[in-house]
Simulated scan of single mutants.
Amino acid sequence: MRIGELAGRTGASTRSLRYYEQHGLITSRRGANGYREYAEDDVRLVEEIRTLLSVGFTLEDTRPFVNCLRAGHEKGGACRDSAEVYRRKLAEIDDEIRTLLARRAEVSAQLGESCSGCMFSIQGEK
């Protein structure tokens, strides 16, 4: 299939597809006319890449998942390297949550100090 069809089937832009190819995540072959030609398997690879990017993974983070799919696994997260990326990402998210909770507590404390007589509640606090 040509790049436009792959873009249409996956929701990725042709620019994104060329970027994924530039980074070695997908591979095209050149037809006699010089157009990029992609295999049916590339649909699944692009879907995996886009799903991971949509939840905050970096493009480089997607590599083990793509490799896992290329190795014949049904799911990109089925391989050890992919699971390690998942664990690292969860640890990063947990750190971000702790940072946000601490920041929220500080802002709440500042509000309490600035406006101790105010009669409005802070959303999420009882």
Rank of each mutant, 00 (worst) to 15 (best):
L100V: 12
Y38H: 13
V46C: 03
S82F: 08
E113C: 08
I3S: 02
I26K: 05
S13K: 13
I49Y: 00
V66S: 03
K75M: 07
D42Q: 07
G24L: 06
N33K: 09
R44W: 01
G76M: 12
L25R: 06
V46E: 00
D41N: 11
D61N: 05
G31S: 06
T10W: 00
R36H: 03
T27D: 12
I26G: 02
G56M: 14
E48W: 02
S28P: 09
R103K: 12
N67S: 14
S13D: 01
L25N: 08
L101A: 06
R2M: 09
G11W: 13
E92N: 00
L52M: 05
R87Q: 04
E74N: 12
R9T: 06
F57Q: 01
T99A: 12
P64N: 03
R70P: 04
R98H: 11
R2H: 10
R30C: 05
V107P: 07
S116L: 04
Y86I: 11
V46Q: 04
A12N: 03
T58H: 01
G112H: 05
L6H: 01
S16M: 15
D41T: 15
A39T: 13
R98M: 10
G117E: 11
F65H: 05
A105Q: 14
I93W: 10
R29A: 14
D41Q: 15
A39K: 11
R104Q: 15
E40C: 04
T58Y: 05
R29D: 15
N67W: 15
T51D: 13
K89L: 04
E60R: 10
R98G: 01
S16K: 06
E84G: 07
H73Q: 14
V85M: 07
A32N: 12
S54I: 00
E92F: 06
S114G: 06
R50A: 01
Q110A: 11
Y20W: 12
T14E: 10
Y19N: 07
E92L: 08
E113W: 11
R29Q: 11
R18L: 04
S121D: 02
Q123G: 05
M119F: 08
L100R: 13
D95G: 14
R87F: 02
Q123V: 08
L90M: 14
E40P: 07
I3D: 01
G56K: 08
R87A: 08
V55Y: 00
L69R: 15
A102N: 15
R9Y: 07
A91V: 00
C115T: 08
K75S: 08
L100G: 09
